[in-house]
């Protein structure tokens, strides 16, 4: 079942950047790629539950600010130590200047 929920405005996120979004007490991260595609993942690192959105973005990688664990934010895949568990990703659509994520 899909459950499309508005996360933010499309222009709240700069190109090549990420913002934190809290919905019902859950932290999400919404990304905008250099090609202006949008992506969404869980907002907390799978290592020690730090907020990822203070981390650095390089290409399609978000790096956790705490111990530099890395994820591909387009797939959620962890990129080596200390990450053992992938990051959950969510489908995203942009309509009428708003970003919606499917919380499923």
């Amino acid at each position: 079942m899909s459950n499309w929920t508005k996360a933010c405005n499309a222009d709240d996120v700069d190109s090549e950047d990420v913002i934190p979004v809290a919905i019902d007490g859950h932290d999400y991260a919404v990304y905008r790629s250099p090609a202006d595609d949008y992506f969404a993942t869980d907002g907390l690192c799978t290592h020690e539950a730090f907020l990822l959105t203070d981390g650095l973005i390089m290409d399609n990688i978000i790096e956790c600010p705490k111990h530099n664990g890395r994820f591909d934010y387009t797939t959620g895949e962890g990129q080596g130590a200390p990450i053992c568990e992938n990051l959950r990703t969510y489908p995203v659509k942009v309509e009428g200047g708003s970003v919606y994520i499917d919380l499923g």
Partner: peptide
């Protein structure tokens, strides 16, 4: 964690 990004 305010300085983390800059240290990286």
């Amino acid at each position: 964690i305010s300085t983390a990004k800059d240290i990286r």
